[in-house]
């Protein structure tokens, strides 16, 4: 299972952890570096899609959504036209639903033009096992038929469990399975940072097994 640190992140929104956390997390990306990475990704998207006339950006809640919005804004600044963007909640398509109590749903907002025939760029904060992206592909399938689907992620931390790769990566971050990666974003947490912390119980299986 992928440790979606968002889950905890959402609850921390009111009081974001400080950079040098008591549990020893250290910042591997600061605000300006995240900005530069997103600007680079925006240009890469335009280059790869030949001007991006038919792209739709879809952020995966929670933290993929503000990232998608930021990417859309950057592409707009470069190309001087608006880019449809929205959010795609994948909760109902997760493969680990039965390992935890039913979760609250995130928002799904598909831009009015739909996704049929468009190049959909999925946007997420951390790429880990690839299971979230697998779920997102299933979710897209029920909504329409895009011409192509691409994946942009702020951090790729490795440890894939499925044959999935990102087309655009902000930073490749080699991690051990025992480390945690937490993305903080201004819109939700008050400041931008990517934190690398020491072992935390991974969301999902081990905790659930203790419960049983």
């Amino acid at each position: 299972m992928r440790a979606r640190n968002h889950a905890e992140g959402g609850e921390q929104a009111a009081a974001p952890p400080s950079r040098a956390d008591s549990d020893g997390a250290r910042a591997v990306l600061e605000g300006p570096e995240i900005d530069r990475a997103l600007t680079r990704i925006a240009h890469e998207v335009l280059e790869r899609t030949k001007g991006g006339t038919d792209i739709t950006l879809l952020g995966i809640p929670t933290r993929g959504v503000p990232l998608a919005r930021r990417l859309a804004r950057r592409i707009e600044q470069v190309e001087n036209r608006s880019v449809p963007w929205g959010s795609l909640d994948i909760t109902m398509y997760r493969d680990d639903l039965r390992l935890a109590p039913a979760r609250a749903l995130g928002r799904t907002e598909i831009p009015a033009e739909g996704i049929d025939g468009r190049v959909v760029v999925l946007v997420d904060d951390v790429l880990f096992s690839g299971r979230t992206v697998r779920a997102a592909l299933d979710a897209l399938n029920d909504i329409g038929r895009p011409r192509a689907v691409q994946l942009a992620t702020l951090v790729d931390r490795g440890h894939r469990e499925l044959p999935i790769r990102a087309d655009y990566v902000g930073k490749n971050l080699p991690t051990s399975l025992r480390e945690s990666v937490t993305v903080l974003l201004e819109e939700l947490d008050g400041s931008d940072a990517v934190l690398l912390g020491p072992a935390r119980p991974r969301g999902g299986q081990p905790i659930e097994e203790e419960k049983r």
């Binding site: 639903l97 039965r98 390992l99 109590p101 039913a102 979760r103 659930e208």
Partner: peptide, 11 residues
């Protein structure tokens, strides 16, 4: 139905 049956235990 989702909240009662969707997870490992009811929400």
């Amino acid at each position: 139905l989702y909240l009662l049956l969707g997870g490992s235990e009811s929400a």
